[in-house]
Amino acid sequence: MAILVVADHHNEALSDATHKTVTAAQQIGGDIDILVAGKDCRPVAEAAAKIAGVRKVLYADDARYEHRLAEPLAALIVSLADDYDAILKAATTTGKNVMPRAAALLDVMQVSDIIAVEAPDTFVRPIYAGNALQTVKSTDKKKVVTVRATAFKAAEENGSASIEDVQPADDPGLSSFVKEELTKSERPELTAAKIVISGGRALGSYENFEKLIFPIADKLGAAVGASRAAVDAGYVPNDYQVGQTGKVVAPELYIAVGISGAIQHLAGMKDSKVIVAINKDEEAPIFQVADYGLVADLFKALPELNEALG
């Protein structure tokens, strides 16, 4: 059995989601290679070579892979697929974009967003926004799988795999990159943070996020999240959203402030190790999943919390 893990990165650094996908690959079992496709990203390939248990890193350095466009990247994956029994990638927005395209070109029905490996051909995946879990067995010869990174531990970094250059595949030339607008933040990435503090509609404005949530996040080294209601109200940008239609997080500590706990939000954070809820409505559903609940007005509780953290 040989498994290809397609790395997640932005040309500068390797994403932790790759390490977690390698763990899923280890649970399937077999020789594991990592594909790093990008532009001028040898440091990413070198980081991938350090992941424990990796046989070799395939490095495709070409301008056509710089912006992770689906059409050229899927073509590259397909050009390498003959040598592999399974192809995995984290279910990031890049993974979700590229992998079904590669799967269809390989005539394979992809298994999306797995949270557990039961057997080399059998996987568990959430359906209905995590309200049910489906165990599926793939009957395709080759497996194409996307992995929910938060469900797997990161593989360690004590390996020293070789790095092998691979030729770019023919670019179908169907799409071109126009621009990217990324949110700049000093805080950790939501899906990788050990602590997440999220605010809901009760915050009332961006200024209140800035005044009440950000200082606590900075003290804790936490990422800041938000409910869909807070995002829809325009308090914070889209990529703050935790939930089924936003980011799925599973930090050590999740602090939900002024969030009622709609099903769609719970789907995005219920696998956190410890959940804290601060809400003035004691009937709020968020308290049903919280390990520690504080019924309080957030405008009083947050300054107190900020002070208590020193």
Binding site: H10, T94, L174, S175, E180, E181, E189, T191, K247
Partner: peptide, 14 residues
């Protein structure tokens, strides 16, 4: 304009 992890990406498609 596509919603991607960390922000937005705009692509042009034939």
């Amino acid at each position: 304009t596509r919603e991607i992890d960390g922000g937005l990406q705009t692509v042009s498609l034939k």
